[in-house]
Write a protein that binds this DNA or RNA. Structure first.
Length: 503
DNA sequence: AAAAAAT
């Protein structure tokens, strides 16, 4: 099988740049908008998806933000929709997004690429007044971009008819699953005509996701792109063990030491986002905050200011952990160690994009030991320890002192010999954990897993993290043949070969 | 144990 991205490279070499998009069959007004934005050549997913969508075929896309995924469906949709006009309350296409910020990003895309077309869009998201959104619907929209809750709400109030929707996009399906939106999605899809085109995107293809795809799609073209073809992402990580009362001080020291252009600072709790942001501001750092309890207007405003460079540090909850595409972040700080190891990967994936160097630094307290173990187990390597000078030395909590939670035999805990943590003063110290890594992989039993998620093998999700997967994980994935008996074969046959191309 | 999304 030829690798799609090799094709892409070959083609890019042969064709003059300006015709990159034109050769995909897009119409003049869209090509013009692309040219004005300075986009000449399609990314691999665009190259594969655009002709397919124009053909009217369903798409099952395994890709993440940053691969050019959004344009891979917005561009051909604009083309398809430009032929005719929308009727009142009967949108002709529907795009479902898991968070408001992502919905907004997609809407911005439509405005940019559709500037030479006369198409309307409506953005249906919570947190803003419903009146205006309903007015727009009444005038007739071609493209409806929505988060599920608000869409259903408006539908139930009779402000919307979905019987004319010809194109449906389900974006970030895996995240929809995480957030419990799947029943809503199923409900919405049941309201749509069966004769329609469906484009379905997900960063992973866990069995539950695949089940949905099977239910929603008919004879889809499967497209898998793990990351932008061009450049290798470079994220260097670091982890500092500090006392709880030193965390804010440690963060300030790190920020001062590092060459921070702009950074996300993740906290686990919304109230800590608030506290930390105020603290940083008090210490004269340029900081703003973003979490889901803020008024929508403030969420958007802060994000815009951050993107515009007016704020240097954005303190945030996991609302910003995935999908959000902010160019050129120099750093990601984990002020708190995320509880889910997967979230670590998503968070640090916000930096090091588009080939830039990115630094991902995590502050851990002695109580975070288990969480750090879990992360290092998932990413397959220890996070290099980084000392913060001038703070009280601390050591990891003894493993025994923390109740080993739930199921499974306590003895099966990863890395039983669990040596004491690296001394705080140590520089970039990796060996101890390195020895512990390979062994513990299978220490967990199926019943041990968190409820709700039905992924196959415990650590399978490495495959298909899309461009969010840091370089080191790609290396590991290639070397993964031992993934073993318990993976229950969920990673599709057709998926692996595509996935390999990236590394 | 927490965050997201509907009010």
């Amino acid at each position: 099988m030829p690798h799609p991205q090799e094709d892409a490279a070959a083609e890019a070499a042969e064709t003059p740049p300006a015709s990159g998009f034109a050769s995909l069959g897009l119409s003049e007004p869209i090509l013009k908008a692309l040219e004005e934005k300075g986009y000449l050549n399609p990314t691999p997913i665009q190259e594969q998806a655009i002709p397919t969508v124009l053909m009217g075929r369903d798409v099952l896309g395994c890709a993440q933000t940053g691969t050019g995924k959004t344009a891979s469906f917005t561009l051909p949709m604009l083309d398809i929709l430009s032929g005719s006009r929308a009727r009142a309350r009967m949108p002709r296409s529907l795009i479902l997004e898991p968070t408001r910020e992502l919905a907004l990003q997609v809407a911005e895309n439509f405005v940019q690429y559709g500037k030479h077309l006369k198409l309307n869009h409506a953005l249906l998201i919570g947190g803003e007044s419903m009146g205006e959104q309903r007015d727009v619907l009444t005038r007739g929209v071609d493209v409806l971009i929505a988060t599920p809750g608000r869409l259903i709400d408006i539908f139930e109030r009779g402000g919307l008819l979905l019987s004319d929707v010809r194109v449906l996009v389900i974006d970030e399906a895996d995240r929809m699953l995480d957030m419990g939106f799947i029943p809503d999605i199923e409900r919405i899809v049941s309201l749509l005509p069966t004769m329609r085109q469906t484009l379905f995107f997900s960063a992973t293809m866990a069995p539950e996701i695949r089940r949905l795809a099977d239910a929603f799609l008919s004879n889809p073209k499967q497209i898998t792109v793990s990351r932008p073809a061009t450049v290798a992402t470079t994220i260097t990580e670091g982890l500092s063990l500090v006392a709880t009362h030193d965390k804010r001080e440690a963060l300030r020291r790190l920020i001062r030491t590092e060459d921070v252009q702009n950074a996300l600072v993740f906290c686990n709790r919304k109230r800590d986002v608030d506290i930390l942001c105020k603290s940083l501001t008090r210490h004269k750092f340029s900081a703003g905050m973003l979490h889901g309890d803020m008024p929508q207007s403030a969420r958007f405003a802060t994000l815009e200011r951050f993107k515009a460079g007016e704020i240097r540090l954005l303190v945030c909850s996991d609302v910003a952990a995935r999908g959000i595409d902010i160019g050129g972040l120099s750093h990601v700080f984990n002020f708190d160690v995320p509880h889910h190891a997967e979230d670590y990967v998503h968070r640090i994936g916000r930096t090091g994009r588009a080939g830039m160097q990115g630094r991902a630094l995590t502050l851990a307290t002695p109580a975070d030991r288990a969480a750090v173990d879990a992360i290092e187990l998932l990413i397959g390597h220890p996070i290099p320890r980084l000392a913060v000078d001038g703070l009280d030395p601390v050591e990891w909590e003894e493993a025994e002192s923390r109740g080993r939670r739930r199921g499974g035999k306590p003895a099966a805990k990863a890395a039983p010999p669990a040596k004491k943590a690296p001394k705080p003063a140590a520089r970039a110290e990796t060996p101890p954990a390195a020895e512990e890594q390979p062994a513990p992989r299978r220490s967990r039993e199926p019943g041990n897993r968190r409820g709700g998620r039905e992924d196959a093998g415990p650590r399978e999700p490495v495959v298909g993290f899309g461009d969010d997967i840091p370089a080191f994980m790609q290396i590991r994935r290639r070397a993964r043949p031992a993934a073993g008996p318990d993976t229950d074969g969920q990673d599709g046959k057709d998926q692996n070969e595509d996935t390999e191309i990236a590394a």
